[in-house]
Design a protein around this nucleic acid. Structure first.
Lengths: 189, 189
DNA sequence: CGCCGAGTTGAACTGAATCAAGAAACGTGG
DNA sequence: CCACGTTTCTTGATTCAGTTCAACTCGGCG
């Protein structure tokens, strides 16, 4: 039992031991240093990762600007959804913001083990749904809230994000400039 | 073979006839008039719909404002993802913008037929993924583009949306005001 | 025919971006 | 462990995209 299977068992307690064993043997442990890339924009995302420890972010270049699209923390599954599932070129890169421990599996191998146990399909489905729900919420917030409101929501709902993420990365994630975020933080607004 | 199963077969040609037959018998056809609701904000979304014909939208009230969060067209699956899958209260309503034909299935029944054939789990997975990819793209656009850019992207990628959706609904969907959209349209900007 | 919601246009206002410059934090190599 | 260059953060002044408020037009429905 490693970090990955322990986490899955926690979230889906009814899973058979056999399924967890298949998962355990299909994922490969990997240590990454701060700054290392999991994916480069334009490439096809070949792997799905589970982040057992550390922080990473996905980001995209557009008109010379570096836009953070997502943060990954401990116990998150990490991939470029839009690239990994259809195996299409990715519009984003993924990099480590700290050293970290990951477990990875290729698209190919994932498809194989889905055939070995039906519950694996269901497990993927389950974690995908969690991700989609997060996306929906984030979209709604970005669509309808002002800069200050967005910051306050993060402060309430994801304070760890404010503690561990640089101003620069957080501001582009919120869709505002560094300067604005800095001003909001110092309470001038 | 109805509109729903014909569409699924088109997108997933390898599915066994047996699976399509299960799906066919599990969904119920329903006609809806313009203005009718599929879901009310605050309720738990009990059904997944397939829209065989017509247009609908999901929307949310916040501070007295009506924000459109999604449009559904012919051949789209319609539900409040965040409500339907975990069976939690919905933050959005869904209403018909035109008369339309739908096929519906309850969460309960869906879980039942998932057990009857593994491919159904996979089918759900497939269409969920398409939705998630759309969400990701939309989030990225909203996060990083100006009002005019967003309008132009819609013009290029989803022109049917501009033809069939009112200014009022489209503007809130883009996260801008009616007036701004009107000005962009008349090319003053 | 008259009303009401939707769309348009204008003027004033404002939240946030941009531009700029200095201060603090960080990493790297000597 | 310090010195240096690089990047990030902060703060201020200015500009601008988009909102708000308001008045008017248009089209459809009862």
């Amino acid at each position: 039992m490693n970090d990955l299977t322990a986490y899955i068992k926690l979230k889906m307690p009814h899973l058979r031991g056999e399924v967890l064993r298949i998962i355990d043997s299909a994922f490969q442990k990997e240590e990454k240093k701060k700054g290392e890339r999991l994916l480069n924009q334009g490439d096809v995302c070949r792997n799905l990762y589970f982040l057992a420890n550390g922080i990473c972010r996905s980001f995209s270049f557009r008109n010379g600007a570096d836009i953070t699209t997502w943060f990954g923390f401990k116990d998150d599954f990490i991939t470029s959804f839009t690239s990994f599932f259809p195996q299409a070129p990715s519009y984003e890169s993924i990099e480590m913001l700290t050293d970290g421990t990951l477990y990875k599996i290729s698209r190919q191998r994932l498809i194989e083990i889905q055939k070995e146990a039906i519950e694996i399909e269901r497990t993927i489905n389950f974690f995908s749904s969690l991700y989609t729900i997060q996306l929906e919420k984030r979209l709604f917030v970005i669509q309808t809230h002002s800069a200050t409101e967005k910051y306050k929501l993060i402060l309430e709902d994801q304070p760890h994000l404010i503690q561990s993420i640089s101003n620069k990365h957080l501001s582009s994630y919120l869709g505002i400039t560094r300067e604005t975020l800095s001003r909001i933080r110092s309470g001038i607004n």
